[in-house]
Computed example of a mutant assay.
Amino acid sequence: MIALAVVVAGVGGLYWAFPTLFFVIYYNTIYTTEFRVEDNKLHMSGMINAYTPEQLKDIFGEHPEIDTIVLGQMPGSIDDGANLEGAAWVADRGG
């Protein structure tokens, strides 16, 4: 009886975790961060995900005059590793 309760609890936990897992997987496979360059400013909005660090590097490569990042509506990060990678890359540039 205890084993059955453990199995039921485990399956129930997976049922409630599935939407969150799907959300994380899906939003880590599309571009969710938006960028706009205006003079020397990079305006950034959207959710940070696995693509964000590479996007940052590309934009800074195309616009070396950027010296300021302006954060707009940023609901958070779907990929904390990418968030830290992007932040460390900007910090290493002296930003």
Rank of each mutant, 00 (worst) to 15 (best):
M1D: 11
A3G: 03
A3E: 12
A3D: 06
L4I: 07
L4V: 05
L4Q: 05
L4N: 03
A5R: 02
V6G: 02
V6F: 08
V7W: 04
V7F: 08
V7A: 14
V8Y: 05
A9L: 09
A9H: 00
G10T: 02
G10K: 00
V11S: 02
G12F: 01
G12Q: 01
G13R: 06
L14V: 05
L14E: 03
Y15V: 11
Y15D: 03
A17P: 00
F18K: 11
F18D: 07
P19D: 08
T20Q: 14
T20V: 08
L21K: 07
L21E: 05
F22Q: 10
F22V: 09
F23L: 14
F23I: 06
V24C: 05
V24H: 07
V24R: 09
V24N: 08
Y26S: 11
Y27G: 08
Y31G: 05
T32Q: 11
T32Y: 01
T32S: 12
T33Q: 02
T33F: 03
E34M: 12
E34P: 01
F35H: 03
V37H: 00
V37Y: 01
E38S: 13
D39V: 00
D39F: 05
N40G: 00
N40W: 04
K41F: 01
K41C: 07
K41D: 03
M44C: 05
S45E: 10
G46P: 02
M47S: 06
I48K: 03
I48L: 10
N49L: 05
A50C: 02
A50L: 10
A50K: 11
A50Q: 06
Y51A: 15
Y51T: 04
Y51N: 14
T52V: 07
P53M: 11
P53A: 09
P53K: 08
E54V: 02
Q55T: 00
L56R: 03
L56F: 15
L56W: 08
K57V: 12
K57E: 15
K57P: 03
D58T: 13
I59E: 11
I59P: 01
F60W: 13
G61D: 14
H63D: 05
I66C: 01
D67V: 07
T68D: 02
I69S: 07
L71D: 06
G72R: 06
G72T: 00
Q73N: 15
Q73K: 15
M74R: 06
P75D: 12
G76Y: 06
S77P: 03
S77Q: 10
I78G: 10
I78D: 10
D79N: 15
D79Y: 09
D80M: 13
G81W: 12
G81A: 15
A82I: 04
A82W: 08
N83V: 00
L84P: 00
E85Q: 14
E85N: 09
E85K: 15
G86C: 12
A88P: 00
A88Q: 08
W89M: 14
W89L: 12
W89H: 11
V90T: 06
A91H: 13
D92Y: 04
G94C: 08
G95F: 15
G95S: 07
